[in-house]
Nucleic acid binder design. Structure first.
Lengths: 259, 259
DNA sequence: AAGATACTGTTATAATATTAACAAAACATG
DNA sequence: CATGTTTTGTTAATATTATAACAGTATCTT
């Protein structure tokens, strides 16, 4: 039970490097029999981490996305509100225009934004999370600025005073910010203290600010406050948003995109 | 000739979505025989785009593409001194010990170092290149610090004043630095001006400095000087190094690892 | 330490994929 | 439109991989 865990992790690691591997290779690398590898792969397959093909196994691309509790979470299915997040991200990408300089916050919703980012608009993108970077690095003709720092596994975000300084020095036309909680009375919150200053810097350096959150976040409160609702110009969310919060946003003069 | 091109593109697109696919699937999807797919895959394999495995093909991750340490190597596309770089990287990884804080420079040789990095030594890794980050992000129990900035496509490196400040603020036990040229008279050089200050910061923040270069770099000079040979304590290279340079390094009191 | 349980390795057999050689079709060119 | 060339499809023989059943080993519990 303990040894298998280690093997499974190693297998995932090898697959992450090569996208795929053969049963033979894995058996050789881990010094176990073919059957053991096959049985391991069955487990990983059952968790939707890999896809077994004749001769080996392929890492399922989605397994990169499901950030969360750990870098590779066996038990967490991930996939909360995935379809909504996808639609929100697509909508946000559609709002981007020629020559825009955009800041993309960390988060799984913003990851979809990054994925749907058009690559023919002469864009500059500033970001600070691993998953966002991965999505953008594949695209052509996008100028990438990454503000670094210490890596935080649970959010895939990098953070440091120097990174914050870099963001403050830059200027963006649009910032797409995520949040863990959006409350009328207590403002916009995230769940890790280290996120705070980076998010604030992103907001302060941008002309237009978009809050991208799925509807489950409205009414929620997390520990760290980083902005007021009024700091944003637009909110992009899914149709699950309550009438109450629709009214609140309208009252505050925020533009609302519902997908 | 025309039709094949289109098929090859489609195959790549399918692989990019799934990382890999089977011959059967591809044959069904493109409505051609499995032999045609096999022949197509052979072509793609010859271009180092995919890796053929029993039953299908796997997309080769970008990090494997050899974007060399100098501009001219872009033309000599692909595997230059790959095996040597691999061995050098492996050797360098073997020199790392429990609790080390290491800085890994950009480059393809250092990419192998990152790949072979042990993951059970409670390490801290500071880096600033995409390919290095990709390798390390997969590993567990490694503290990652990334100094960001503007992305440079040809070297996969990020660079900015804030990134340099971040490196200078940190302290490392070992730095593994690459170079495009190593000359007795003119010192250690790289081929892009933007690399200079980052490399200098890496050197200045590290206790022990290792120069990791394949033997073809000795005697070469590139445009940007960033260090003297004496700034390093060890050199790791392959057996192609000339007797002359062996002598020079010995004279200067540098440790020499030949793999 | 004994017994139960889970894990791993070894086979023989079944299923699937690869190769090579040839035939058919599509294509280009004079 | 005939001919040489390239591309694609078909087939049978060959090679590789998958499966299942069982035996051995390790691990855990009491």
């Amino acid at each position: 039970m303990e040894k298998r865990e280690k093997r499974l992790e190693k297998i995932i690691r090898i697959l992450k490097m090569n996208n795929a591997s053969t049963v033979q290779e894995l058996a050789g690398e881990l010094d176990v029999s073919h059957m053991t590898i096959r049985r391991d792969l069955e487990v990983l397959s059952g968790q939707n981490m890999v896809r077994i093909i004749h001769g080996g196994a392929v890492l399922i691309p989605e397994s990169f996305e499901d950030k969360g509790e750990s870098s590779y979470s066996l038990l967490t299915a991930g996939a909360v509100k995935t379809e909504e997040k996808r639609r929100i991200g697509k909508k946000a990408a559609g709002l981007i225009g020629e020559g825009d300089i955009i800041i993309i916050d960390s988060g799984s919703t913003t990851e979809y934004l990054a994925r749907f980012l058009p690559d023919d608009l002469n864009l500059t993108v500033l970001c600070f999370a691993m998953n966002i970077l991965k999505e953008i690095a594949g695209k052509r003709d996008i100028k990438i600025i990454f503000s670094g720092g210490v890596f935080h596994e649970n959010t895939l975000m990098f953070e440091s005073p120097e990174g914050i300084a870099l963001i403050k020095r830059n200027r963006a036309t649009k910032a797409f910010i995520s949040a863990s909680g959006v409350s009328e009375k207590l403002g916009v919150t995230c769940s890790n203290t280290y996120e705070r200053e980076t998010k604030r810097a992103a907001i302060s350096s941008s002309l237009k600010r978009y809050l991208v959150v799925d509807s489950s976040k409205f009414g929620k409160v997390q520990s760290d406050h980083f902005a007021e609702l009024e700091d944003f110009h637009y909110v992009i969310t899914d149709s699950g948003i309550s009438g109450e919060y629709k009214g609140i946003l309208k009252e505050l003069g925020l533009g609302l995109y519902i997908v």
